[in-house]
């Protein structure tokens, strides 16, 4: 029971995930600002390091106004449930050893379910307050979901097929022996990064909350503590999916000097890898403009889906071939 409390509240759970989410928000804001020749967060803490925490606390202390036309229960509950999903997902990601705290054989299925649940809760948050802007945002989110989800699942399936396992622990162990998956499936890695951008609603694919078109999309009506949770949800989701990709394609905690046990060096490798992925995602999203809805469909169905299927066939050939 004690270990459960530590898992869920301290190490991969609430405290650690929140800290990583704040760090990700800081890095993203700072890097985006530098790319756009601004300064970014500057005053709170060392070089503005505490700015995300200050923003979160400020929003928590503000008054929450629930619109009269909204479904009150869902409006209040959905942000809380949404926040719990990526934190729970972090418990299944191997970080410091080849084993994850709560992992079992076949936990890739659970991760797929959690990915679906994230999208579903986002829809719930949008339709809790039915206004024209949230409706358009939710519609665009569902449209985008139908495109990136299949691609992301095909990327995961390619990895699972080559490593012959459906547990993240076993996938990491395979990479400890045979080297990271990115060497075998560079195409799959690129596809996974693109669908990750669509999943996180980052710049080329930020249609669901496009600032200049539909006020804030599905999060237009949120205020106060709910807005704090919704904002944190997007960064927690980023932390979780980037950790997943680091485990699936870069080998997670594996590297030179890593033996498979719980060790600081494995954890350091993991942190370095997720930070590299964070910089990659931020540079791509900060240096590109938003595509149109038509362009989204053309790119995904015309280019990325065939590439994902090609990657899947290649992985199957590695698995079942001579």
């Amino acid at each position: 029971m004690m270990d459960l409390l530590i898992y869920s509240l301290l190490f991969p759970g609430v405290a650690f995930s929140f800290a990583l989410a704040f760090w990700f928000e800081y890095v993203e804001r700072k890097l985006t600002a530098h790319i756009q020749q601004r300064i970014g967060p500057y005053f709170t803490g060392f070089k503005g390091l505490l700015q995300p925490i200050a923003d979160f606390a400020k929003l928590l202390l503000k008054e929450e106004i629930v619109p009269v036309t909204s479904d009150r229960l869902v409006f209040v509950l959905a942000p809380l449930i949404s926040l719990s999903i990526p934190i729970f997902g972090m418990c299944f990601v191997p970080m410091a050893s080849t084993r994850s705290p709560l992992g079992f054989s076949g936990d890739v299925y659970l991760i797929i379910f959690l990915l679906v649940a994230e999208a579903f809760v986002t829809v719930l948050m949008g339709i809790a307050a039915l206004t024209p802007y949230t409706l358009i945002g939710v519609g665009r989110h569902i449209l985008q979901y139908t495109m990136y989800e299949g691609v992301f699942l095909l990327a995961i399936a390619s990895v699972a097929i080559q490593t012959r396992s459906l547990g993240l622990d076993d996938i990491v162990e395979y990479q400890m022996v045979n080297g990271p998956m990115i060497l075998y499936q560079p195409l799959g890695f690129a596809i996974a990064i693109i669908s990750l951008l669509a999943k996180l609603e980052k710049r080329p694919f930020d249609l669901p909350h496009a600032k200049q078109e539909i006020v804030a999309g599905w999060m237009t009506e949120f205020s106060g503590a709910s807005l704090a949770f919704v904002r944190l949800f997007s960064y927690l989701s980023m932390v979780w999916s980037i950790s997943l990709i680091a485990d699936l394609y870069l080998g997670g905690p594996t590297g030179y000097g890593f033996t498979g046990d719980y060790s600081l060096i494995g954890f350091a490798y993991f942190l370095i890898k997720i930070n590299l992925l964070l910089v990659l995602v931020t540079v791509i999203s900060a240096s590109s403009g938003r595509i149109r809805v038509v362009g989204l469909a053309r790119r995904f169905w015309g280019l990325i889906y065939p590439l994902a299927i090609l990657q899947f066939i290649l992985a199957s050939m590695v698995r079942f071939g001579p």
Partner: peptide, 28 residues
């Protein structure tokens, strides 16, 4: 191990509810 996962999820959810409740209590 499956029950453990469920309990861990509910611990996380309860913590978030706690954060929300405290913030609602202290908010303006």
């Amino acid at each position: 191990i499956r029950l453990k996962a469920v309990i861990a999820y509910f611990i996380i959810l309860a913590t978030l509810f706690l954060i929300y409740g405290i913030s609602r209590f202290f908010s303006f």
